[in-house]
Computed example of a mutant assay.
Amino acid sequence: MSDSRPRRFRLRYVAAVLALFAAVIMGLVASNGAESPSVEDYYSSFESRLGYWLLLGNTRHCGLYKKGQLSPFPISRAQRAMEEKLYTRLGLKEGARILDAGAGSGYVAIYMARKGLNVQAIDVTPHHLVDAQKNVRENGLTEKIAVDYGDYHNLTTFNDESFDGIYTMETFVHADDPVKVLNNFYRLLKPGGVLVLHEADFNRNSQRLQEVLRLSHCGNTLEEGEYRKLAEEVGFKDFTLEDLTDEVLPMWRLFGVVGYVPYQLFKLLGIAHRFTNVMAGVEAWLNWGDGRYISVRVVKP
């Protein structure tokens, strides 16, 4: 009988190398676990950049599906459906000027421009701006879309009543001061101008939820009912809300299934807080129903 010790040694060696490789990858991908990461920290972390690239094609928003659909694929088609929902909710005529407040890589702005709208896109994350400017150029839309650095907490570079519409696509949840941001939007809209927010709210608070929101710089995510209250306090009227939670479930189910086993391992190792997107995806799936994905629409009188 041949000696199996060399083979066992090789297997241990391979296992050790794989473990070391996995540790290196985990170290590279993990966020720095900062107590209060900025929105730039969150989107610039390797984990976020890798996840958005692998799963969402660098488009940083949910897809919209038919109620009851199980499969999340093709994801890009669902994302275009969400952009169409946003466009429909805006209800603006061709040639209208709109503000994309948190443009990411510019794909929503590109969709709006192809629908005939003129878009001023802003973002605070440097690599988002680089991506958006590149994507706008490659799509031949530089005459329809301007991409600039901009923080929706300070929009003094824009004149009063200079936009027909404003929208956020999953970026208002990052606001440090939601009331200030709404007041800024109100000032920039023309009378009759429309604001549409595709965002999240929640109806059951918990320590784990607050941890996820803190790590993803969404600590001021509003509770159910707060959008109407704040919008009307600022002066907006004609509040409408569409609950799209069931229509985004296929994508979040995918996040939950893909991330479940790694998340349990990260929790066991005490490093789950360093993998914010994995934590958020799995926890949202496991606690589905505690929050909502909503489309809010209001009008400036």
Rank of each mutant, 00 (worst) to 15 (best):
N159P: 09
R214E: 05
K93C: 02
V234C: 06
G150F: 06
P72M: 08
S31T: 09
A200M: 14
P178E: 15
I122C: 11
Y186D: 04
N58W: 13
P72A: 11
P301G: 04
R214C: 05
S4H: 09
N184C: 02
G27A: 00
V108P: 07
V296L: 13
S162H: 11
P250Y: 01
R77F: 05
V298F: 00
C62M: 11
K66Q: 12
H127Y: 15
T245L: 04
D148F: 10
V14D: 04
E35D: 03
S2V: 14
V147G: 02
G102C: 03
M279Q: 10
D164G: 06
S36V: 15
L254E: 01
K67I: 10
I122M: 15
D100E: 09
A23K: 07
V298K: 04
T240E: 15
V194S: 01
M112D: 12
Y87D: 00
G33K: 05
N32R: 15
A175G: 03
I25S: 07
K93S: 08
R274G: 05
R228V: 01
M26W: 09
N58G: 02
K180F: 04
N277H: 15
V278R: 04
D151A: 03
I145V: 11
L188F: 05
S76D: 13
K115Q: 13
N58M: 09
I110C: 12
K134S: 06
G150R: 10
G106S: 13
F255K: 05
F236E: 00
D148E: 10
E83A: 09
K115S: 06
K229W: 02
R60A: 09
Y293M: 11
A19F: 15
L197H: 05
Y149F: 13
N203H: 15
S44V: 13
I166F: 03
S295L: 09
G192L: 10
L188E: 05
S162V: 13
E199P: 04
L64F: 11
Y52W: 13
G140C: 00
T125K: 11
F172V: 02
F236S: 02
E83N: 13
H217S: 10
S295M: 14
P72Y: 06
N205C: 06
P250V: 08
L230I: 13
S36E: 07
I294P: 01
L182Q: 02
R208K: 06
P6W: 12
P301Y: 00
R89E: 08
N220I: 01
S36G: 10
L241I: 13
L55F: 09
V179D: 12
W285F: 13
R274D: 05
N135R: 04
A16M: 11
F236W: 00
L20W: 10
V194D: 02
L86Q: 07
V298S: 12
Q207E: 07
R204M: 06
A200P: 04
G33T: 10
K300T: 11
H217W: 03
D100N: 11
E247Y: 07
T125N: 08
M279P: 02
V136R: 01
A109F: 05
S295H: 12
S4A: 12
V136Q: 05
T125D: 06
P178H: 14
N118H: 09
N139Y: 00
V179S: 12
L99T: 05
E226R: 08
Y227G: 00
Q133I: 03
L90N: 12
H217M: 15
H61I: 13
I122Q: 09
T245W: 05
D148A: 10
V212L: 04
T157P: 00
V212F: 01
R114P: 06
R114A: 11
F163H: 05
